[in-house]
Simulated scan of single mutants.
Amino acid sequence: MRPTIPSYGTRSRNLRVTVRSRYASTSTSKADSPAPAPRRNRWLGIALVTAAAGVAGAYIRSQDPGSATLNQETFTKYSLVSRESVSATSSLFTLRPRIPSGGNYDVYENAWRTGIWSVMFKQPQLQIGRDYTPLPVTSATPLTVDEENEGYLRFFIRKDPFGEVTRYLHNLKIGSDIEMRGPKIEFAIPDETQDVLFIAGGTGIAPALQAGHCLLSRTTENHQPKIHILWASRRREDALGGESDTPEAPVSQKSWFSGWFSSGNNSPSIGPVSNAPNPAKSLIVKELEGLKSQYPGQVTVDYFLDEDNHFISKKHIANFVKTRPPSDGSRKGNLILVSGPAGFISYMAGPKIWAQGQELQGPVQGIIRDLDLKGWAVWKL
């Protein structure tokens, strides 16, 4: 429905407006001269004109679709194309620009080549925003040519019962508009990077897929980078059908949240996520396998499930690191990236800190510090 501009015509009758001809005689007697308008009425007229201008301006702005190209300065409107359930608490969102723009191709391409990036979604009622990480396109879940040309983006988003933005997004109807701003580069992966160990918790798998896409797209005959992903999920359905690439004997360990919220009784792990023959596979597992098939021999993934008491430990990190050649000393050849909930990041590598109005990395702590990994740069996302 088009908003209407209130009419102020009825109020204008209360205003005394004097119109004097440009060529009027200057010899008019004082008795014939109109009395000056009271000051109160003059201020009322100014107020009414200002109010009318404000309403008109708001109406015009409401009709302005803004920039059709994603940018860091203003919010761009996207439409919700689909929301596909991944688990009881998470969904795969597909969005497209409300107004197709060829400029989005260059914006996306530059961000994909740089490293890990996000966009901010706005919750318009509360005027708050939160950053979310787009998923790269893989052979497992490809976009059509038309969808790529129109600038489609996909997001893996968990519904947090206490999150204002996630609840807003999960309650939207298909076809609704979502305002986004970006891209924001979270971490630029150096060109010389050879090996990445990505430790992901929950929806932190989305940045891991981005890191793999960026790193492996640089593959040449003389440059064969590799990425190893350790993905910890609370629910089996998130990682349904995922099979770990690293065989291991059961070890006693604990989850990141057991150390924070419980007594932390250790339980043995019970092996891979699923031992059933040809199990159904979750969308994210398909994404990971699509990345593997696209870059054979350069991607390995190990799955961990809280429901199975199977958690990431120091041993899993150390076992991978010791198999990789040492860095050349630049600390750019080997990277450890950590992404997930704040508690997960703190447990693995220590918390990020706020200083001078911005979020900073803070010192490396947690179980990674205990390993004393030399020649590996650590970054918390």
Rank of each mutant, 00 (worst) to 15 (best):
R158P: 02
I157N: 00
A24T: 07
W117K: 13
N41M: 12
V19P: 00
Y78E: 02
V81H: 01
L48V: 08
A58I: 02
G129Q: 15
P38S: 12
Y78V: 06
K77R: 09
S87G: 02
L143N: 05
R154F: 06
T74S: 11
R40A: 14
K77E: 05
Y108M: 06
D146I: 08
P124R: 05
P38Q: 13
L70E: 02
A68K: 10
T69I: 01
S101Y: 02
T89I: 06
S25V: 04
S62F: 00
V19E: 08
I116G: 05
M120N: 12
S79F: 05
N71G: 02
F93A: 00
R158C: 05
E150Y: 13
A68R: 09
R40P: 01
V107N: 00
W43S: 07
N41D: 12
Q63N: 03
N104G: 01
A140R: 04
L44N: 09
G54S: 08
G57R: 07
S90F: 04
W117L: 08
T94P: 00
R113H: 14
V49F: 07
K122H: 11
L80T: 00
I60R: 15
L95V: 12
P97D: 01
F156L: 07
V49R: 08
S82K: 05
Y23N: 11
G115Q: 11
A37K: 12
S91I: 00
M120S: 15
S27R: 07
V119C: 03
V49Y: 04
L80A: 00
R22E: 11
